[in-house]
Simulated assay, not measured.
Amino acid sequence: MSHAIAEASASGTSVVSTDCKSGLAEVLHKGEYGKLCKVGNINGMANAMLEILTLSEDELDSNIKRGMSGRDFLMQKISERI
């Protein structure tokens, strides 16, 4: 799993990723907290990036307010599970 994606999610940054086998669908809650594209789908990635880049300020704010899944992967949360 990419730490950068978990960190971006935790800070409220919009994420675009491929739906690879490394668990990113879990981190992004199957696309609820970011855009997931099929591996190798270049047009899908480009469209997902354009979609995020054209979000209104209100839509971007709602992404931050609803609480991004990356917070679930902070060290404190992980240590609480152990």
Rank of each mutant, 00 (worst) to 15 (best):
M1C: 03
M1W: 08
S2M: 04
S2N: 14
S2Y: 15
S2Q: 12
A4H: 05
I5L: 09
I5N: 04
A6V: 01
A6E: 02
E7P: 00
E7L: 02
A8N: 00
S9M: 07
A10C: 06
S11Y: 12
T13Q: 03
T13C: 13
T13V: 15
S14W: 15
V15K: 01
V15L: 10
V15H: 06
V16A: 10
V16Y: 04
S17F: 02
S17C: 04
D19M: 01
D19G: 03
C20G: 00
C20D: 05
K21W: 12
S22M: 03
G23E: 00
G23K: 01
L24W: 10
L24F: 09
A25D: 08
E26G: 00
E26M: 08
E26N: 06
H29E: 15
G31W: 06
E32A: 12
E32V: 13
E32N: 01
Y33P: 05
Y33D: 14
G34F: 10
G34C: 01
G34M: 03
G34H: 09
G34K: 01
K35M: 02
K35C: 05
C37I: 12
C37V: 15
C37L: 08
C37D: 02
K38L: 14
K38D: 12
K38H: 03
K38G: 04
G40W: 09
G40V: 05
G40Q: 02
N41W: 04
N41Q: 06
N41G: 03
N41Y: 07
I42M: 06
I42G: 01
N43W: 08
G44Q: 07
G44T: 01
G44A: 07
M45A: 07
M45D: 02
A46R: 13
A46T: 11
N47M: 11
A48P: 07
A48S: 12
M49W: 03
L50S: 07
T54S: 12
L55S: 02
L55T: 13
S56N: 06
S56T: 15
S56P: 11
S56M: 05
S56D: 09
S56H: 07
E57L: 14
D58Y: 09
D58S: 10
L60N: 13
L60P: 00
L60R: 14
D61A: 15
S62R: 11
S62L: 08
S62E: 14
N63Q: 13
I64E: 11
I64C: 07
K65Q: 15
K65Y: 13
K65A: 15
K65M: 13
K65I: 14
R66E: 10
G67V: 08
G67T: 09
M68K: 13
M68P: 06
M68N: 06
S69R: 10
G70F: 01
G70M: 03
G70K: 00
G70H: 00
D72M: 08
D72T: 04
F73V: 02
F73T: 00
F73I: 02
F73S: 00
L74C: 07
Q76L: 00
Q76P: 04
K77N: 07
K77Y: 07
I78C: 01
S79F: 11
E80I: 00
R81H: 08
R81P: 04
R81E: 13
I82R: 07
I82P: 02
I82V: 11
